[in-house]
């Protein structure tokens, strides 16, 4: 995901023109981190603690793994014996079961303080996962990236199987898949993806860039009114900018 305090259009053009697929966002108020030379990175462990900061080039894959192992392991945390079935269900991806079991412990009279705290931990993990998937559905729908929406809905359906939540996700998934505008959006996204590759392949060649720009403009006409056409406009601007430089 990404965040920027540069102008949104500028970042958007950069993201599409360079085929950046991880999330990139805009945030203006990040003073908790201070400010200084760019780039500068922070590695944050799953329990929300900062474990490293420095120049991203000095961070290797091995270092990431080592640093995370050093932190409290969020996934194999030792839990009170009565919470073990809930934790096991969670680690198997049976989130609805984990939630049910953890709620039962929490609501049980005479449950130990440790067991309640551990049950709450399991509930928090299930909750965070739910928020993440729903966020993906929401953001993907907003930006017209339906492959992400399908992926997240599929996960909700699978990991909350047997609940109303899963049924709602299945229903929404079926509706979206049958929706002609979603089909159009998916087709447009696929085509746009190819145009992005062509823009990258064109390098600095003015002739090639012009050819891709014409294709992008045609694409925008063909898919007028889609979210993909909005993204194509960013690509078009990026090509014009590349052409001027």
């Amino acid at each position: 995901m990404a965040i920027s305090n540069e102008a949104a259009d500028k970042v958007g053009e950069f993201v599409i023109a360079n085929n950046i697929t991880y999330p990139v966002g805009i945030a203006k108020k990040t003073e908790g981190y201070g400010s200084g030379g760019i780039p500068h990175a922070y590695l944050i462990s799953p329990d929300g603690k900062i474990v490293w900061d420095g120049h991203p080039a000095s961070l290797s894959n091995g270092a990431v793994e080592k640093l995370l192992r050093k932190t409290k392991d969020f996934y194999v945390r030792k839990v009170a014996p009565e919470v073990k079935p809930a934790a096991a269900a969670f680690s198997k991806g049976k989130l609805a079961d984990a939630e049910k079991l953890a709620n039962a412990i929490k609501g049980k009279e005479g449950a130990g303080r440790e067991a309640v705290a551990d049950a709450e931990y399991v509930l928090a993990r299930v909750g965070a996962t739910r928020v993440a998937w729903n966020g993906k559905v929401e953001n993907g729908s907003k930006s017209g990236v339906y492959l992400d929406v399908f992926d997240a809905l599929g996960k909700i359906q699978k990991h909350f199987a047997g609940t109303e939540e899963a049924q709602a996700a299945a229903k929404k998934l079926a509706e979206l898949k049958a929706d002609p505008s979603v089909k159009l959006e998916l087709k447009a996204s696929k085509t746009l993806e190819k145009l992005v590759q062509q823009k990258i392949g064109a390098g600095r060649s003015g002739k090639k860039l012009d050819a891709v720009r014409k294709k992008v403009e045609k694409f925008m006409e063909t898919y007028d009114g889609t979210k993909a056409a909005e993204r194509a406009d960013l690509l078009r601007n990026a090509i014009l900018k590349a052409r001027r430089n």
């Binding site: 945030a27 981190y33 990175a41 799953p46 995370l68 993440a132 953001n139």
Partner: peptide
């Protein structure tokens, strides 16, 4: 404020449970 590729949630707190590389 705004995402360009869909992200999971709108704040860093929504990503609890994931390892994050936060790059300025």
């Amino acid at each position: 404020e705004k995402w360009f590729n869909p992200a999971e949630g709108s704040t860093i707190d929504d990503l609890r449970g994931k390892a994050i590389l936060l790059e300025f």
